[in-house]
Structures are given as structure tokens and as C-alpha cells.
């Protein structure tokens, strides 16, 4: 048997794995965002400890209520499920289900923005009402920054929805969906700390 026939007899070369550039970039960006919030939380908790140690009230009595924060947490937990549904559906090449799940995730994300703004107004707490306490200022900074992160996450999901709509993602290539999902999970993770630090432990 001559050489060309030998080569023809070889099995096909293994598929070269596609670089997960978008996924790795998103992981780095998410980690940076989480560190940013860790910085905010560290200052929030430190200031709260110092203010209370000085005998000054941190938040006015009744200003922070648990139900709104709990509702937002529940909404985000639901969005975790829909985002996981997106990932599962795309792995099964079920584009219709993945689009439905993406749309529901975006609706839930949009409702987080709505709930945050509603609660800000409902609370009626002025940012500089109490010069002795930085509580309101820090609370608005943290929840405002989280709202911005949520908006970025929604834009990311929207772009991936458009790509999915045009057939870019499937069971063999779902990097963009995985990246958007990872970022969204970090949005929820950050909120869970907000929920504990601001709403539960007040």
C-alpha cells in the first residue's frame, strides 16, 4: 500500500476545542464586579459597626422592611431557574424553549429594576436626611450599583437572545449563553449578600 492510501486509512483528526474566549472574559469581568461589591460591603459593614458603637442609629426605625427585599430575592432565585433552563434547552438544541426561557429571565430582570426603584420611592429616605449616619448614602450606592449590574446583565442576555434567534448557538457551541448565564448568576450572588447585609441584618 502506498503512502497516500495510508493517509486515507487514518481516522479523522480530533476536533480542536474552540477557545472559550467569551466565557473566560466574562468570568474575569464577573469576578471584578464581585470584588467591587465586596469593597462596598466592607465599607458598609465597617461604617455600620462604627456608627452603632458611637450610639447613633444606623437606619431610622422601620425604614428598611424585609418583604420588598425578600420579594426581589425570590424573583432573582426564580431567574436562576429560568437561566438554567436556557442552558439546558440550548444543550438539547431546543431553540424555542431557550428563547422562551431567555424572555422570562429578561422579564424577571426587568421586574428587579422596577422593584428597586419602587422601593426607593416607597421608603422615602433622603440620602442626606441624617448627617450623623451614612446608612442611606451607602444603601443607595450599593443598591444603585447592583441595579446597574442588573442592567448590564440584561443587555448581555438580550444580545445572546438575538444571537440565539439567528441560530448562532446550539449544543456544540453555547459559549455566549454560558457566559451570559455566568454573569447573571453573579448578579444573583451579589444580591444575596445585599439581602443579608442590608435587609436581614439591617
Amino acid at each position: 500500500m502506498d503512502a497516500p492510501n495510508d493517509m486515507l486509512a487514518l481516522p479523522p483528526a480530533a476536533e480542536v476545542p474552540r477557545p472559550r474566549t467569551l466565557m473566560v472574559g466574562t468570568v474575569l469581568a464577573s469576578a471584578t464586579s464581585v470584588m467591587f461589591f465586596m469593597g462596598l460591603f466592607a465599607i458598609y459593614i465597617g461604617q455600620r459597626q462604627q456608627t452603632r458603637a458611637a450610639g447613633i442609629e444606623w437606619f431610622p426605625e422601620g425604614a428598611i422592611r424585609l418583604p420588598p427585599g425578600g420579594m426581589m430575592m425570590m424573583t432573582l432565585v426564580l431567574s436562576l431557574g429560568t437561566m438554567a433552563w436556557v442552558q439546558q434547552a440550548i444543550r438539547n438544541d431546543d431553540r424555542r424553549s431557550s428563547l422562551i426561557a431567555l424572555a422570562i429571565t429578561m422579564i424577571l430582570g426587568g421586574s428587579i429594576i422596577n422593584q428597586t426603584v419602587f422601593y426607593w420611592k416607597d421608603m422615602g429616605l433622603g440620602i442626606s436626611d441624617n448627617p450623623a449616619s451614612d446608612a442611606a448614602m451607602l444603601m443607595y450606592t450599593i443598591t444603585g450599583a447592583h441595579m446597574l449590574m442588573t442592567i448590564v446583565g440584561l443587555i448581555f442576555i438580550f444580545l445572546m437572545t438575538v444571537r440565539t434567534l439567528f441560530g448562532q448557538y446550539n449544543s456544540r457551541q453555547a459559549d455566549g449563553i454560558d457566559a451570559a448565564a455566568f454573569f447573571w448568576y453573579s448578579v444573583v450572588a451579589v444580591y444575596s449578600v445585599i439581602w443579608i447585609a442590608i435587609y436581614i441584618t439591617k
Binding site: A31, T32, M35, F36, I127, M137
Partner: peptide
Amino acid sequence: MFSMAILLADLVISYVALQHAD
């Protein structure tokens, strides 16, 4: 990325304190 993110947090708080909380 990890350390400068914390610097950004410091700057955001300073900005809000100055611009919005007097």
C-alpha cells in the same frame, strides 16, 4: 482587577458622598 475594583468602590462612595449627600 481584584484590587482596582475595590479602589473603584472607594471612588464611587466618595463621588456619591460629595455629589448627592453633601
